[in-house]
Design a protein around this nucleic acid. Structure first.
Lengths: 391, 391
DNA sequence: GACCTAAATATAAGATCCAAATAAATTCTC
DNA sequence: GAGAATTTATTTGGATCTTATATTTAGGTC
């Protein structure tokens, strides 16, 4: 009942090739999907390459069926993205927030408002939304819930399900980033490291996203055990961006050599400053880059050796500046293992990886079970009263 | 087409309850399986609890359909197990080998001979074997092959497929141990550590066994990176048994205190001696136990934090003596994580975990697709000549 | 217009399953 | 032992999904 062809206008013949089904069956399914409101027949004859034989009937996704919403509900930033059923962006908005000041209800309200505005930008309303997928920086189990013990996790997974438009599904942010990367370049064994403020990984092994009992797969707490955090007592779960900032701020005074980073006020140094200084040849910054690379290399080794991961993607806001760290990490990968080394690459999605993955995930869910969702203004929605054997 | 009820005699009513299908459907399937030779109807009325109504037809697995063979093809030891379709052991043999002296062909020949003898013990022959599952200490991909680069792996995965009776499937040994443990106590997120000479893990996440691109999931090479092997330069991939032995042998001279282990000739010390000395209160042995526990705790932390594993099972020959190491490791698990700690338990299968898992895996494959395999002396095997439209 | 072609339709048939009616085999009751 | 009650087996019809095989249709080309 799933149809793989949804990108553009398609004919029954193409669907037959893609699904292996017979023409009669394909047309039957298309009929059903037209009835349900998911597809519409294209009557406009423009652009047909004038072939021999009877012209094929052509179908396309019915745009009016609705839109999907992706929401990256980070700790300090919300991003909403409205897209049509082909994944084309119709609107996007970003807004900084202070989650700890807002609390759970405040996060939900801020998300509601941001989505509402983004929908306006896109020229549609809440009733057009078929499915909203939310990414949160917390483990999320298959029911959309986070472990009861974690206060931070409960704040992040703030109970969006009832408040957002359309059906709502909640997912871990790194998992969504992995979905986005998987859509960009399919691979059966990838890890996507979401590495800005916190470290989190979306793990795809044997073509499937790992979740774990409570959604904890991909958490990076294990770094705490091995990295005895020289200098700082904080968690190994800090992302590369956070580490670059913290290390720089902590070391500009004690560092023996000269460093351009001192010119900045200590509290003002951001991760981006460190990367930029390193590009300019600053020795302290280069040292920090080296340590970040070493850290990344260790993570890559664990992922590749324990899970046979073939590609490690660094995603998140810092992915555009992460190049030098990757180069350093590549040099540190052990060369003598029997298995090929994982490729270390930077995401091309930048800060939008999570929200793009959210949209992609929504589209995947809809494609998988279109008949479980009612498109807007379906020609025959929930069945009207039937004459029948209800006596 | 799969049937879940195969343990004992069962009725259509029971199968209906188990599968949710209709009586008519269940009986139809049973008919087909009787035809194919997998089931037989029980006519002996003994043991029927004398109920009201028409007596149910009762079916059971047809023992004569064949047997399965499990083979643990370790580096220094082969174990073969012949079992019937209910998993009951019909014969078992173990034999020590020197793989490096035998080479690939020698390993295959030794396996052939061992299986042949075990089949004799069980009162059957090679033609009775439906499926042989082989566990090897090497990564194995879904095609049964090991990475081309690894010389040791190629020696272990010695090309058994063409030489052993029945259909043959090759699997990683730790993965098979995981299957065996899973059969003992089902759980969706378990790691089974096969830890005698070498470390290897069978990882079950979200109810599925992880494989990885080249079958490398569960390899423990990452330990090399973190454990800088104090004292010994050897690989972190050594199992707990190997480490206990190596550490004891290396330290009996340099150890400052008194230790009963000195009474043994250095080259004669085995892992079992260390565990026994520790039970007797020997300080060096206790120290080694402590270090093994610390190592195990670190592994457990990685598995639980990265994969949200809820249970870590220690399997293999040393599992019976591993208790004190587990106790030590449990005390070292961090207490402050938001997620529950993994349970550390010893396997109850001892040295038979892999071979038991091989048999279990064979039975699972047969249950999943009975009609893909022809049972022996099927009443209607490969279809005989049909009158048909073959003109 | 005759002819060709590829697709759409129509029709029949098989497979799979369920639901309901019918038949069979047994125990229980009188 | 006859008949009721009970439980299961068997049969029948139908719904659904799919394939296979005509047959029709909507365009081209000559």
């Amino acid at each position: 009942m799933r149809f793989a062809l949804q990108e553009q206008v398609f004919t029954a013949g193409e669907a037959m090739a893609a699904t292996g089904l017979t023409r009669a069956t394909v047309l039957g399914v298309c009929d059903g999907l037209v009835d349900a409101g998911w597809l519409e027949e294209v009557v406009d004859g423009a652009g047909v390459p004038a072939s021999k034989g009877r012209p094929a009937r052509r179908y396309q996704l019915r745009e009016a069926a609705g839109v999907v919403v992706g929401l990256d509900a980070g700790e300090s930033c919300l991003t909403a993205l409205v897209a049509d059923l082909r994944g084309r962006q119709l609107g996007k908005r970003r807004r900084n927030i202070d989650s700890h000041a807002l609390g759970r209800a405040g996060r939900v309200a801020a998300a509601q408002e941001l989505i509402s505005r983004t929908l306006s930008d896109a020229g549609c309303g809440a009733s057009d939304v078929l499915l909203t997928v939310v990414g949160v920086p917390a483990p999320v189990d298959s029911a959309g819930l986070s472990p009861a013990g974690g206060e931070f996790w409960q704040l992040m997974n703030a109970g969006f399900a009832k408040a957002l438009p359309g059906a709502v599904s909640i997912e871990n942010d790194a998992n969504l980033a992995a979905v986005a990367e998987q859509a960009q370049e399919p691979s059966a064994n990838v890890a996507t490291l979401l590495s800005g403020e916190r470290f989190g990984a979306g793990l795809i092994v044997d073509g499937r996203l790992l979740r774990g009992r409570q959604g904890g797969a991909g958490e990076m707490r294990f770094l705490d055990v091995f990295e005895s955090s020289p200098g700082l007592g904080d968690g190994g779960s800090d992302g590369l961006g956070a580490l670059a900032r913290k290390w720089a701020r902590a070391e500009i005074q004690s560092y023996a050599g000269t460093t351009s980073l001192r010119e900045l006020s200590g509290d003002a140094i951001q991760a981006e400053d460190v990367f930029q200084a390193a590009r300019g040849g600053d020795p302290l910054a280069a040292d920090i880059i080296g340590r970040l690379g070493a850290r990344l290399a260790r993570i890559a080794v664990v992922l590749s050796s324990l899970l046979d991961i073939e590609r490690v993607v660094i995603a998140g806001g810092i992915s555009s500046a992460i190049g030098p760290v990757l180069e350093h990490a590549r040099r540190l990968l052990p060369a003598d293992t029997g298995l090929p080394l994982p490729a270390l690459v930077a995401s091309t999605l930048g800060a939008d990886a999570v929200v793009q993955g959210a949209v992609e995930s929504a589209l995947i869910q809809i494609r998988r079970e279109p008949l479980a969702i009612f498109p807007k203004a379906a020609r025959s929605g929930p069945r009207t009263v039937q004459e029948g054997p209800a006596a």
